[in-house]
Amino acid sequence: MKRLSHYKEFVSESEISRIYRKGTELSKYHILHINSSYYGGGIAEILRNMVPLLNEIGVEVGWRAMVGSPDFFRVCKRFHNSLLGEGIDLTEMKKKVYEGTNEDFSRFTHVDHDLVIVHNHQPLPLIRFLQKRQPWIWRCHEDLSTPNQEVLDYLKSFIIPFDKCVFQTGKCIFSDFQKECSFVNPTIDPLSTKNEYLDDNKIKKYLNRIGIDLSRPIVSQVSEFDKHKDPIGALEVFKQINEEMDCQFILIGSVSRYDPEGESIYGQVREKVKEMENVSLVLDPHDIFINSVQSASDVVLQKSLKEGFGLAVSEALWKETPVVGSDVGGIAMQIVDGENGYLVDPGDYDEAAEKIMDILSDDDLRERMGRRGKEIIKDRFLITHQIEKWLDIWREML
């Protein structure tokens, strides 16, 4: 079992000691996280790594995931897309499915905790159906820079009773009504299978399985098969690179069973890959394979059109791999343009291809960016930083 003390390789002993002390102050409280699933996506990954460590330092922290029908998750996906700016027909039936599922979940979910954290929009209505006896926090992971106002206004009716909102970028979206806001960066766990150090032999073992030649340059992208991650655009960028220089592209993705659009997007990607050379498409690999690809890559691409945060960026930078990413959402928090990679216009394939080729063509630049990337993640985006920020918020509220 991982313990906080195991992280002294990455953070100072004084920081670890401080976190233990803060945890002891909260040892009499019971805290609950609620999200939409135990697996798939960055939220589940963060909670899966963070909750055991919080318990180890003395804070009783639980985690529950929503139970819902395919109709519920289809409606939630529509809401997700609309919060990213798409249009929607916000019918009474959609509201009924959304609110009704939360009401049903509340009937077999007993919440007698001292504080409740609700992640994203899926469980928002629970606060209406569970008798509120304690502070509630809404933790928003989504990019709300250009939301559909009708849906946002509808969701605000559930957000109003919350005691605090926690965002991951330094901007509170609720300027039209009083709401206390805090900001917590998502983070990676350097001791997880996906981020631990791998030696060259292990990396070679996994990449040999898909026929990758380690003597040739490698570009990769890791993301869900979601239109907002733009895997088709990533392929178009690589197509331009492949016309100019010898290179290989590894496109890794997953299809969440909670995302009704995922299979369709994956099908489109698979058909396009058939028309291309030097592209390896990998569906739902295990974490050690993702680690191997990010470690072996010369450049990682994050070609998102919208992005809440993008943990894959921090994962790659931790492995000293420069990242060329779209200048959207949380990607811009992780990439310092020209230092550990480049930020590009999400719609400009030419710019993305040019920046990737600049890095591939310059060994010194690539190594310098790689070193700086790891420094930035160590300073800002490791799991210990997020744990301490949450402890500080909870100490204020309890």
Rank of each mutant, 00 (worst) to 15 (best):
L83I: 02
K95N: 05
W136T: 06
V273E: 05
M397A: 04
V75W: 10
E9C: 08
P161S: 07
H385S: 07
S220G: 02
E396W: 02
L124K: 10
K8I: 10
D213L: 07
S256W: 10
I252Q: 03
R64F: 13
V300E: 03
I331E: 01
A353Q: 03
P217N: 09
M245C: 10
I377W: 01
W138E: 01
M333L: 15
G325L: 05
V151C: 08
M50T: 04
N55Y: 05
F72N: 06
I160A: 10
L305W: 10
D104Y: 13
K194D: 02
H110P: 01
V324S: 04
L283A: 04
Y154R: 11
L207M: 04
M397P: 05
L198V: 06
F73T: 05
M1K: 15
M276K: 01
A312H: 06
L54R: 01
C76L: 11
S182F: 03
S326L: 01
P285Q: 06
Y154M: 07
W136P: 03
H80I: 08
D199C: 12
V51M: 12
R64H: 11
N148F: 03
E9R: 14
L281R: 01
E354F: 10
N278I: 13
N49K: 00
I377M: 11
D246N: 14
F309W: 15
D153Q: 12
L115D: 10
I159M: 13
E263Q: 01
S106G: 07
I88D: 14
L235K: 04
R395I: 10
S182Q: 06
I127A: 01
Q149S: 05
I359H: 06
H30E: 15
G308Y: 09
I387F: 02
G329I: 11
V184M: 07
N291L: 00
S256V: 10
E339L: 09
S215W: 02
C172I: 12
N242C: 05
M276G: 04
W136F: 11
E243D: 12
G233M: 02
I16K: 04
C172L: 14
W318V: 13
I241M: 11
K389R: 14
L115M: 14
C172T: 15
N195V: 03
I16Y: 09
R216L: 15
Y98I: 00
Q386L: 08
S27K: 14
Y349T: 15
